[in-house]
Amino acid sequence: MLRGRAAVAAALLLTVLAACGTDSSGGGQSGAPLGDRPSSKVDVATKDMVAAKKASKVEDCRAGSASDGGLPAVELPCLGGGDSVDLASFEGPMVVNLFQGFCAPCKEEMPALQSFYETYGDEVPVIGIDVMDTVPGVALEEAISRGVTFPMYADPGGELQGGPLTARAVPATYVLSETGEVELLQMGGMTSAGQVKRLVEKKLGITL
């Protein structure tokens, strides 16, 4: 019985690591299910990560000005070093992307999110959160290699699980409205800034 359970657990782990998504009818890629929460003690700002971020164009993590903008009141460390930030300080509209370093569709959609950020970031900022990842250095490296500059945070211990930013699979992207409502924007990878724009406009009822 124990041997059978071990085999199932191993198969699930291999599935998550090897293939983070499959084709979906929506034209993107569906997310991969996440396993159990790893430890919150994972170092998300090792010496190498800090050096890599410093040499990149990734922006510093900065808190917003709200006391309760709608996101969970959870303080997350900055991926690659920097100030920790209480997510509740952010105000909408905003795009929040949940990702992991070994997730193929997560990596594939990074250029689309970055392009959207470069074009519309003044109106609708973007932040990334590396969720329940035991190797955050890979996530930072992959993001930097794909030109990501928007701020990125880390939730290695799954502090966001069970709340409005629950990651049932990655990638998962949420939007925060001006009135503080958090809604799922897309489960699975997005392929272009235009697709991100259309989804944001439709979900938030705005025109960019």
Score class of each variant (00 low, 15 high):
residue 99 F to R: 06
residue 70 G to K: 13
residue 67 S to D: 06
residue 112 A to H: 12
residue 56 S to H: 02
residue 188 G to M: 04
residue 2 L to Y: 09
residue 39 S to R: 05
residue 23 D to T: 08
residue 131 V to K: 05
residue 170 V to H: 01
residue 52 A to H: 03
residue 55 A to N: 11
residue 26 G to L: 13
residue 89 S to W: 05
residue 105 P to E: 02
residue 151 P to R: 06
residue 105 P to I: 01
residue 38 P to V: 11
residue 195 Q to E: 15
residue 83 D to S: 07
residue 134 T to I: 09
residue 126 V to T: 10
residue 191 T to F: 09
residue 129 I to F: 08
residue 51 A to L: 07
residue 104 A to W: 01
residue 152 M to V: 05
residue 127 I to H: 07
residue 160 L to G: 05
residue 164 P to F: 05
residue 204 L to Y: 00
residue 164 P to L: 07
residue 144 I to D: 10
residue 70 G to D: 13
residue 139 A to P: 08
residue 189 G to L: 00
residue 140 L to N: 06
residue 175 V to N: 09
residue 50 V to R: 15
residue 19 A to M: 07
residue 104 A to K: 07
residue 11 A to V: 00
residue 5 R to M: 15
residue 158 G to N: 07
residue 103 C to P: 03
residue 71 L to S: 13
residue 195 Q to L: 14
residue 206 I to D: 09
residue 54 K to Q: 14
residue 146 R to K: 13
residue 192 S to F: 10
residue 181 E to P: 02
residue 10 A to E: 14
residue 55 A to D: 15
residue 27 G to L: 12
residue 110 M to N: 12
residue 175 V to M: 10
residue 93 P to Q: 11
residue 1 M to T: 10
residue 71 L to D: 12
residue 22 T to Q: 06
residue 140 L to T: 04
residue 18 A to D: 00
residue 49 M to S: 02
residue 135 V to K: 02
residue 181 E to F: 08
residue 100 Q to I: 00
residue 12 L to K: 12
residue 176 L to D: 11
residue 177 S to V: 01
residue 130 D to F: 00
residue 52 A to R: 14
residue 8 V to S: 10
residue 66 A to E: 14
residue 1 M to E: 10
residue 182 V to K: 12
residue 181 E to I: 08
residue 94 M to L: 15
residue 175 V to A: 13
residue 60 D to E: 14
residue 143 A to T: 08
residue 82 G to E: 03
residue 142 E to W: 01
residue 97 N to C: 05
residue 40 S to K: 09
residue 112 A to G: 10
residue 99 F to V: 02
residue 116 F to Q: 11
residue 20 C to I: 00
residue 64 G to T: 12
residue 95 V to R: 05
residue 50 V to A: 14
residue 80 G to N: 11
residue 79 L to G: 10
residue 7 A to D: 10
residue 58 V to R: 04
residue 11 A to P: 05
residue 199 L to D: 11
residue 42 V to N: 08
residue 42 V to W: 07
residue 24 S to Q: 00
residue 55 A to C: 12
residue 105 P to V: 00
residue 165 L to Q: 14
residue 136 P to R: 01
residue 74 V to N: 09
residue 169 A to Y: 03
residue 162 G to A: 02
residue 122 D to N: 14
residue 180 G to K: 12
residue 72 P to K: 09
residue 48 D to G: 04
residue 133 D to Q: 04
residue 171 P to I: 04
residue 65 S to G: 02
residue 207 T to S: 15
residue 83 D to L: 03
residue 56 S to G: 00
residue 68 D to K: 14
residue 150 F to T: 08
residue 197 K to A: 15
residue 129 I to R: 11
residue 197 K to V: 11
residue 126 V to H: 06
residue 6 A to E: 14
residue 9 A to W: 05
residue 54 K to F: 07
residue 87 L to N: 05
residue 46 T to Q: 08
residue 61 C to N: 06
residue 103 C to A: 02
